[in-house]
């Protein structure tokens, strides 16, 4: 048994898993407050990463300005998507809502391919990339940055939902829209805000991943990989999203380890989360932390 490889993969899994956790959090945020399953979450990452890349490479701006511009753009973008496409879908059957986000995902994915091309592009050197040696393991600095990013984002979310006015309004809306609205919370504002925040944070995650691996249309696949994570954690639990993300990240790398050491099937890395997904759905459909739907006639 190759202990060193196992350790390396575990660390990788933890870092990737935390990133999945951040994206899962964004996904859950939208689902919880607006009851929309966002199949276009991966495109938020993709668009954010490409727009930031565009400001850095095409416009030649320094990183922090480009980054802020991207955040501003994504906020507007999220609000716009919600107001134009999702608002007419309130009260429509679930298949319509799913299909409209799939339509959006298809549209933006090919738009990005058209504008920026299909080949992967690497980010200009923003931070010094070097390899740090921690306890005998070689870890890229970028990975540590992404780890810090994930933790900061999670802490930010925690603070936001526990202590900020908008966060409390969001939780109230998620709990009961009519009661929230009668207490003076503007539900449409909450909807817009949750899309904006989700788009913004996803875009940041996209930029972080882009810095490590380069930007390409493969980024949008992460939006699909988040599904096992959110289902494992429970669709409407933010904590669940984080836990699910970490577990899926770890399991994915464990599958890679087993595959490379013993089975030699190849490709188990990408497919293992979906097997896990099917198993969870048959055993425990509402996940670890999700609330069980109780239907009343």
């Amino acid at each position: 048994m190759n202990t060193e490889l196992l350790l390396q993969l575990t660390v990788n899994g933890l870092i990737v898993g935390l990133l999945y956790g951040v994206i899962a959090m964004c996904f859950v945020l939208i689902y919880k407050s607006t009851q929309v399953v966002n199949f276009a979450q991966g495109e938020f990452l993709l668009i954010g990463a490409w727009v930031c890349w565009g400001t850095l490479v095409w416009l030649d701006l320094p990183f922090y300005i480009g980054f802020l511009l991207t955040l501003g753009f994504m906020t507007l973008f999220g609000i716009l998507i919600q107001a134009v496409f999702l608002r007419p879908m309130i009260g429509e059957p679930i298949i319509s809502v799913i299909m409209i986000t799939i339509g959006l995902s298809m549209f933006f994915q090919s738009l990005m391919k058209w504008i920026f091309g299909v080949s992967a592009e690497s980010y200009p050197q923003v931070f010094e990339t070097s390899v740090v040696n921690i306890a005998g393991l070689n870890i890229e600095l970028a990975y540590i940055l992404s780890l810090i990013f994930s933790v900061v984002m999670m802490a930010g979310f925690y603070w936001f939902f526990k202590h900020s006015r908008m966060g409390l309004a969001m939780r109230a809306t998620a709990f009961d829209q009519q009661v929230a609205s009668s207490l003076g919370i503007s539900v449409s504002k909450v909807f817009a805000a949750s899309w904006a925040i989700s788009a913004m944070v996803s875009a940041t995650a996209g930029i972080v991943i882009g810095m490590v691996n380069g930007v390409s249309s493969a980024l949008s696949f992460i939006g699909i990989k988040v599904f096992p994570a959110v289902i494992l954690g429970g669709l409407d639990s933010i904590v669940g999203g984080v836990v699910g993300g970490v577990i899926i990240g770890l399991l994915e790398n464990l599958a890679e380890f087993i595959d490379s050491q013993y089975l030699h099937i190849g490709n188990l890395y990408t497919i293992a989360p979906f097997y896990i997904l099917l198993i969870i759905l048959t055993i425990k459909p509402y996940g670890l932390f999700g609330t069980r739907d109780i239907e009343r006639i």
């Binding site: 007419p88 879908m89 319509s96 409209i100 339509g103 995902s105 298809m106 549209f107």
Partner: peptide, 10 residues
């Protein structure tokens, strides 16, 4: 195709 899906749904 993506656009047509969206437009029809709306």
């Amino acid at each position: 195709i993506g656009l047509v899906i969206i437009l029809f749904l709306i």
